[in-house]
Design a protein around this nucleic acid. Structure first.
Lengths: 330, 330
DNA sequence: ATGAAAGCGCTAACAG
DNA sequence: CTGTTAGCGCTTTCAT
């Protein structure tokens, strides 16, 4: 690896001049500039950004940290972040915490050491407050989807509205008894969605609501298990609402396995995308994940740029997709 | 952020002793060790790994670089890498090059600057040789899926075998005229798969083979376009073989749009997974992506550990999944 | 066993 | 406009 010294030697100038030539070309004489650039090209030199950032505390890079990279929602958040970063000349590091708080802490440490400038942050579900590493450092960050009640920008989805859209859709289709397969109440989004359902369902039919709610982890296995439980419990129902894509996938598997035809015998509606190739299509609400990632990143760049205004929250409305029109519904 | 100096001050020793206490505890007196550790805990100090690696040229971190993080194959390669790294105490940086050589070069530069110890590398499709940055540095790396003919370990899938499995499956089902929707011939894997098909098809029916082959980009759009072309060209065919998942997804979309029922009117078989929720299931071969990522990472750790034996290639056999048995087929 | 000091690659005063 | 130098946080001779 060539260093700035090599360039200086070849160009016959001091390292300072080389540094200036790169960061402040106007402050170096045309002749020297020429020779320095020639030397740079000749050696294939590129400055070591880390040595640089050890000094200047900025690195033109940000990270996006998500709990599960194989979840299409998080994937699109990442893609959204990429879309704005590419234009801004930043490098993006993608970290997959696999819903593990320890892994998250380790990754945060590594990112901080590596002088990243900011973080698009979807925290692990079990976090109830900002990880110590983060509170000990003033790293610019913006939350997506989940948030921890701190004074940071946050981009969120309108969970209650999404559940309501799905619920009203099912009711409009004539279903009376709607069951829920939900996520954990200890998590912000799990709770929001469960509660949205609860208030809707009680409104319709208070007596049955309790028996028709099953909650567990936001996982495919969880959805599978809860769906089985629901069916095998023998309760009457004509539709099921799953509050996230993984739960929905698990539920669909369970239904198929149990010989239940969706939507003939039972209708299934899902929060989040479940895959475009499912046939017949499953009614679902889709979060604007890409846009959420992009918006988060725009905010982040503003913060990195020095904006220290009050924390902002933006709420994205989910979009309803139904087999009938497959387009926005409001 | 606390530095080693802060610790030294609190403990009342020199920075050298603090450093030793962390890296070579036996060389520091028990009393001092105690006071230093107390200071570390008190301050919540953690050493800056980058400043460290600026010196020692190692960082306990590796990266996995893939051309498209939303492709399930690459996703599983990443997950496989994660599985072995977690145990080894390494941090993993995930880089998405989005099939762009420029983005790839930039990311490589950043990784190198940040002193990563090694790379699990799925190069961009258009690369025909090792990026200059990589040849200028002796970074340990191992290829997955694609490779560039250099002296590095590489983990590959048996492309010819996969195509053959699919082809033979279709023939066994009684199909006579099989069309191909393939990737670009300029890429290693695109070519391998196309050629495997070509030799099989010519064997069966030399005359029709040419008209029945369509190749383009490994993208959903490509698959969609080629499938349409194929259908609209009016050639007779009773089965289509798509040589990667994206092409398959695009083809499936096109067929559905054109009112062609799969597999009633036309059978579709796909190389790579296309999603487990497609109903009825599409026959496909599945690469052992997770295992490939894991194996690559094991090799990589060996190389990082100093193993300088000759380059190894391991070929993973794809597995055939059919609607009929949905299990391994050989 | 310990500390002073050099140096990893870079930038930013500060002199000249 | 240019070069010398200190220093970012850390490790590692080299003396003591």
């Amino acid at each position: 690896m060539k260093t700035i010294k090599d360039v200086a030697a070849v160009a016959g100038v001091s390292v300072a001049s080389v540094s200036r030539a790169m960061n402040n070309p106007s402050t170096v004489s045309p002749e020297n500039l020429k020779r320095i650039n020639a030397a740079i090209r000749k050696l294939g030199y590129a400055p070591n950004k880390i040595a640089r950032s050890l000094k200047v505390q900025t690195s033109k890079s940000v990270a996006v940290m998500v709990p599960d990279i194989s979840n299409p929602f998080h994937l699109k958040v990442i893609k959204g972040a990429e879309s704005v970063l590419a234009a801004a000349g930043y490098t993006l590091f993608i970290m997959d915490t696999e819903e593990s708080a320890e892994k998250e802490a380790r990754s945060l440490r590594d990112l901080l050491d590596r002088q990243i400038d900011g973080l698009v942050y979807v925290p692990v579900l079990t976090n109830d407050r900002l990880p110590p590493i983060l509170s000990a450092n003033q790293l610019p960050l913006v939350f997506v989807d989940r948030f921890l009640g701190t004074e940071h920008d946050s981009i969120r989805g309108n969970n209650a509205a999404g559940i309501s859209m799905l619920y009203r859709y099912l009711i409009a289709k004539g279903h009376r008894t709607i069951a829920l397969i939900g996520g954990p109440d200890f998590s912000q989004i799990g709770r929001e969605r469960n509660e949205a359902f609860r208030s809707l369902a009680f409104q319709e039919d208070g007596s049955h609501a309790q028996a028709l709610m099953r909650t567990g982890d936001f996982t495919v296995e969880g959805g599978y298990r809860l769906a089985r439980e629901l069916v095998l419990s023998g309760v009457a129902m004509d539709a099921v609402l799953a509050t996230n894509n993984l739960l929905g996938i698990g539920a669909l598997k369970a239904f198929r396995e149990l010989g239940i035809r969706v939507p003939i015998n039972l209708e299934l509606a899902v929060f989040d995308e479940i895959g475009e190739l499912v046939d017949p299509p499953i009614p679902h609400v889709r979060q604007q994940a890409f846009e959420m990632g992009a918006q988060a990143t725009r905010f982040l760049l503003e913060r990195i740029g020095g904006d220290s205004g009050p924390a902002r929250t933006v709420l994205f409305e989910p979009l309803l997709f139904t087999p009938e029109h497959y387009k926005k519904f409001s």
